[in-house]
Design a protein around this nucleic acid. Structure first.
Length: 730
DNA sequence: ATTAGCGTGCTTTTT
DNA sequence: GCACGCTAAT
């Protein structure tokens, strides 16, 4: 291992008092945090229980924990976690002080949307006229500004939308409280409110966490900021690490001012700048720094590296997005051949997710192994949400949202009208939905037949509640699947979709087993793990991709933060795409600067080679638009760049040879109705999830054609041609 | 209770 | 260009 540089050393040796570490890209900040924690424990005999390390992602937290434990040689027993998981744990412990039950539910953003929609209707508005997302964003902003619905209402003045939001906000909060449910914002806000209101509790935690470390401090929002301030108030042993140049979540409430004002908040704070970059070549670093100089309001940093020289970043002018993808593919293949690189050395970044499609299609047909990173697909699946709703209801029977979701899934003959009656009954009792269900036998609001159905559901849940108290996680989950008969509803179908659903359920079961093995069999902890899940982690990816370790990574610029690759391609460097805007006139300086930081983050991920691609035209929202190169390219001095014009060459030379011309690459289902004639028995095909296979038979014509394929790894499958995106192989 | 047919409206998303 | 959500029809 390399020796720490003097600045890193200073940071690691710092003992007491506030410290701000301005850690430039690739300057080894995680290393500093890890080493300092180990140093505190080993050399200053600080008991690990007095140390708190806060991160933004589970991935970062786990990585840190592992590195610390490895260095110490034993599990350190300090507190490391995300803001949200730390607050959740604190709130469960202190639940009685905040009017919660210990097993309160944590809801994710998709559930938030469901709740907002309900609140819109319940508040007396027409759901069709309001965009739930917009309402939710306003509510979230209000909450994070510690504004109550009443505050918000007064503040709204004559703004009709805001007046409406105030009512919806009130309704939303009322519903959540009734369910003992907290959204992500609540985890932070309720914790801060608890600490603000209760000096004794605050004192306890201040005394517990005497050494506090916060990673990615530039991304903290106001609640996170206050949380840190409150905890650090007594001992002032607070170290924050961050880089104002890498602040890319302003639109989510992150306040760059938190890091800029650190020395004002903690007078006498020591500032250490980590400016030596261990990642990128000088050529890449110079270009990135030149770009960043165009931003105002930043803390001056002079990143440097001793890896002099290196290839200048390539500016690749291409015809359009498809030429861009092919150019990138060609370059990857060339470098793999000429320089002996692996696919895993390459990454393609894009501004918006929609851009990934062309790369997926072209890489599929070019047979280039690739993986779209940061997909939360698994947790968005209906099956996962349903099963999680069961778990939530069982752990917290007050959770009417969860109850509503699964009361008739699978179908139990409890239809809309029956649920309506139950809701009204619950309302009249001033109780939650499941309590009403438990009392249904004492009334005659339902016909005997319907009442039996509801009682059946009640018994399932009551049984599972009992089982959850006596059995461990895997046994409980097995019983859950058995008693709810959830898998049966797909087993009885045998459609391509139902096969996928069963796979998802299987994947969930694997996850349960894996969790129990790795962490333990506590059901409540598992539920938290699911609710505060990490979309970046490997688990939950269905299919066989994980078997193949060598692939090109495809990801958004946002998802690229914290990662590094030997070769990076940044795509779509065009005005409107990067910087992204709909209306150039409406874009504010702050937004432009954040877009610039976003590109800076992308550029500084590259270790050896960097490509910035710009197309002459691009298809966006179904329309082809002529595009101009991004202003960001012009902001980098031309002598720092290697400008290549591929607008002519890309089509003629690349198109024909290695990569089949576009017309021969039907991403079949996507636009044209396909006839069975396109696929004949014996032909080799590729499916994006299931891998390669051989066509066995093909029945019918048009998009509803059923095609049977024997997959090399996934076995024999029946698929609907219209929905499965098959690619012919030769 | 399901489903086809249309209309709309599009960033980024650590938790 | 595609997905999602609502409406209307069975």
């Amino acid at each position: 291992m390399i020796k720490l540089n003097p600045q890193q050393e200073n940071a690691v040796n710092h003992l007491d008092g506030p410290l701000l570490i301005l850690a430039g890209a690739g300057s080894g900040k995680t290393r500093v945090i890890v080493n300092r924690i180990v140093h505190l424990i080993r050399h200053h005999n600080i008991p690990p229980r007095h140390i708190l390390a806060v991160t933004f992602t589970n991935k970062a937290a786990n990585e840190m924990k592992e590195r610390i434990n490895a260095m110490l040689g034993f599990p350190a027993g300090l507190t490391i976690g995300t803001f949200h998981s730390i607050c959740a744990r604190l709130l469960r412990r202190e639940c009685k002080h905040v009017g919660l039950i210990e097993s309160f539910t944590i809801i994710d953003d998709s559930e938030q949307i469901v709740r907002i929609k309900r609140a819109i209707t319940a508040a007396g508005f027409n759901a069709a006229n309001m965009i739930p997302r917009a309402v939710l964003d306003s509510v979230s902003r209000a909450k994070n500004a510690f504004m109550s619905p009443d505050d918000y209402n007064e503040n709204a003045g004559f703004n009709i939308f805001q007046k409406q939001v105030a009512k919806i906000y009130a309704q939303y909060e009322k519903d959540l409280a009734a369910d003992y449910s907290l959204d992500f914002d609540d985890l932070l806000i309720k914790t801060v409110n608890l600490l603000k209101d209760s000096p004794e509790i605050t004192s306890r935690y201040q005394d517990r966490f005497r050494y506090i470390m916060v990673d990615e401090y530039q991304d903290t929002n106001s609640a996170q900021y206050q949380f840190v301030q409150l905890l650090a108030d007594r001992y002032r042993n607070i170290m924050v690490v961050g880089d104002d140049d890498q602040s890319i979540y302003r639109w989510r409430g992150a306040e760059i001012a938190n890091i800029l004002n650190f020395s004002k908040d903690f007078p006498g704070a020591r500032i250490i700048k980590l400016e030596q970059n261990y990642r990128s070549s000088q050529a890449i670093l110079s270009a990135a720094s030149a770009l960043m100089k165009k931003n105002s309001k930043r803390m001056e940093k002079k990143l440097w590296t001793d890896r002099k020289g290196g290839d200048k970043p390539t500016i690749a002018r291409v015809l359009d997005e498809r030429a861009e993808a092919r150019y990138i593919i060609r370059e990857i293949k060339r470098m793999k051949g000429e320089e002996g690189r692996s696919f895993i050395d390459f990454a393609v970044f894009y501004r918006i997710n929609a851009q990934s499609r062309v790369f997926e299609e072209e890489m599929l047909s070019a047979q280039l192994p690739h993986k779209v990173m940061g997909n939360v697909g698994f947790f968005k699946r209906k099956e996962i949400k349903d099963l999680l709703a069961y778990i939530r209801l069982i752990l917290n029977p007050f959770d009417s949202g969860a109850c509503r979701r699964i009361i008739n899934v699978p179908k139990r003959g409890i239809g809309r009208t029956t649920v309506q009656r139950l809701e009204e009954y619950a309302e009249s009792l001033n109780k939650d939905l499941f309590s009403a269900i438990e009392m249904i036998e004492e009334t005659d609001i339902l016909q005997g037949f319907k009442q039996e159905r509801v009682s059946g559901f009640k018994l399932i849940i009551q049984n599972l509640i009992r089982i959850s108290r006596s059995e461990n996680l895997t046994k409980f989950f097995k019983k859950l699947l058995e008693l709810t008969e959830y898998p049966e509803m797909y087993e009885s179908q045998d459609t391509p979709e139902s096969v996928v659903s069963l796979e998802i359920i299987q994947e969930f079961e694997n996850m349960v087993a894996d969790y129990q093995e790795r962490i333990g069999g506590d059901i409540k902890e598992f539920a938290d793990y699911l609710s505060l899940h990490d979309s970046q982690s490997e688990s939950g990816v269905s299919g066989n991709e994980s078997v193949d370790r060598d692939y090109v990574s495809l990801l958004t610029l946002h998802n690229a933060k914290g990662l590094e690759f030997p070769v990076v391609f940044v795509s779509g460097l065009e005005e409107g795409m990067c910087p992204y805007y709909r209306d150039k006139e409406e874009m504010k300086l702050q937004e432009l600067e954040e877009e610039r930081r976003l590109l800076y983050v992308g550029m500084t991920r590259a270790k050896e080679r960097l490509y910035l691609c710009a197309g002459n035209e691009r298809r966006l929202h179904g329309k082809i638009r002529h595009s101009r190169p991004s202003r960001f390219i012009r902001e980098i001095p031309e002598e720092m760049l290697d400008v290549q014009n591929m607008t002519v060459a890309a089509v003629s030379t690349v198109g024909q040879q290695q990569i089949p011309p576009f017309t021969d690459v039907p991403a079949v289902s996507i636009s044209h109705p396909t006839s069975s004639a396109d696929f004949k028995p014996g032909e080799r095909v590729r499916h994006h999830k299931l891998g390669n296979g051989t066509v066995i038979r093909c029945d019918g014509t048009g998009p509803s054609t059923k095609i049977t394929i024997s997959f090399d790894r996934a076995g024999k499958r029946k698929l609907m041609l219209g929905v499965c995106r098959l690619i012919k192989l030769n």
